[in-house]
Amino acid sequence: MAFITVTDLSLGYDEQLVLRDLNFSVSKGDYLCIVGENGSGKTTLMKTILHLKEPISGKIETGDGLKQNEIGYLPQQTIVQKDFPASVKEIVLSGCQGRCGFRPFYSKEEKTLARENMERMGITDLANRCYRDLSGGQQQRVLLARALCATGKVLLLDEPVAGLDPKVTAQMYDLIEGLNKEGITIIMISHDISAAVRYASHILHIGDRVFFGSREEYLKSGIGKSFVEMGKGGENNG
């Protein structure tokens, strides 16, 4: 069985349907990219997978030894207030909270885990800095380290490179690719179609037309071809 299996899923807000009859699955080691226009329901889908929202119908099952709370997550925008006093160390460590259950304090292993993940993301020297004083790219790394503390199995990333400059964007993609090579399953939402077809093993395209399949299938499909062309056009113009 796959890590995450989605069958006949319809989602939306109250009566307003955003997406209907979605079927796809994510297996261990996959790198799934979710692409689609603004407002097509990518973030909504992600929140439904995380059980932050109830689906309208259909179901999301986790299997292959994956528990519901073992999905780490990088939000699209963190709604953290500008004046929140929190150090990088405190934030990364808070990723371990889900492991604690009713235990009030973090164990030695969890502190070690937080330190390792900060090292992995190259933010060890920022450990005592205040989160709000960091650059956008540094903040994303901190949140990624936090997500890694929550799980070593699946990461959900909602537009992890939004607002980053090309150099930092490339670094971020490398970082994510590295994590995938280490065996972490990645589900990434992206507008960057060229990156999606470069790194992903599978693509889920949502919108008026829905596509799910491997990268090769996507590149051969009509929807994939037109979308990739559009991406290229945008790049040349920009």
Binding site: L52, Y73, P75, F84, A86, G95, G98, R146
Partner: peptide
């Protein structure tokens, strides 16, 4: 620690089982 996690990012805390 739980109050910190929930204050900092409630959605993340919820998603990861707090």
């Amino acid at each position: 620690n739980k109050i910190f996690a929930v204050t900092f990012d409630e959605e993340f805390a919820k998603a990861t089982g707090t």
